[in-house]
Nucleic acid binder design. Structure first.
Lengths: 114, 114
DNA sequence: CCGTCATGGTAAGAAAATCGTACCATGACG
DNA sequence: CGTCATGGTACGATTTTCTTACCATGACGG
């Protein structure tokens, strides 16, 4: 069957390559942006070279993805509802019971006919 | 004045030390957990050694913080209040205007006397 | 005070990883 | 075909990390 067990480093490498190709960047452009040699970028995307924490951070910014995504493959549930950030600010500082009340209000809206 | 300009690596190192000490773990325990030598942990927490991406991931799990926090010092607005996940589910599927209404309701609660 | 243990800092040679500079393969395009 | 862009790879030089020590400090009990 399929399902080779790739190491975390290999999975990270694949996501790095995918993110770069999605943006249409060349390995050379990434190398210049991060001040690396191009072969280093090649190796990063094939799992043949370690990736330092600060490099990972800069790559995530360059590719406009989260570090969490590059490491785990999952976005941290943040990009989906964009306006949710606004709601998060709105409930910031509220007590736990108040947040629950806000949630109940949301449920109420969901159940009520439009 | 104060405000020494620390490098990103140094800031990461300080947060790693802080997170470990907050949990009351010894450098040796961390070294065993990540299968590293103890001097390596010492160097990681003093900025004297690079930290690989996968190591950063494992450290974040061990310390129960997000990778984003270790890198930037800020939580990605997601892990902080745990009940946000519940609120996110509650507003999922609501129309944009309804989410705004929920947010206004939250603001109302914030402004109203307890 | 003394001994001991836990913890963390550091040094030096050995080992490993990365870098720089090549050279090569492929594909698009004229 | 010639050329250009892109990406893969090899290998010696360089840099970094690891291993194994040894040392300093502080807590604690005798």
């Amino acid at each position: 069957m399929s399902a080779e067990k790739r190491t975390p480093r290999q999975e990270l490498a694949e996501r790095l390559r995918g993110a770069r190709e999605y943006l249409g960047l060349s390995q050379d452009e990434v190398a210049v942006a991060l001040q690396l040699s191009r072969p280093s970028v090649t190796l990063m995307e094939s799992g043949g070279r370690k990736i330092e924490a600060t490099e990972l951070d800069r790559l995530a910014r360059l590719y406009r993805v989260s570090v969490e995504y590059l490491l785990s493959g999952r976005e941290p549930e943040d990009t989906e509802p964009k306006q949710f950030a606004f709601l998060a600010r709105a409930v910031k500082g509220l007590s736990e019971s108040d947040v629950q009340e806000v949630a109940r209000f949301a449920e109420f809206l969901k159940k009520s006919p439009k």
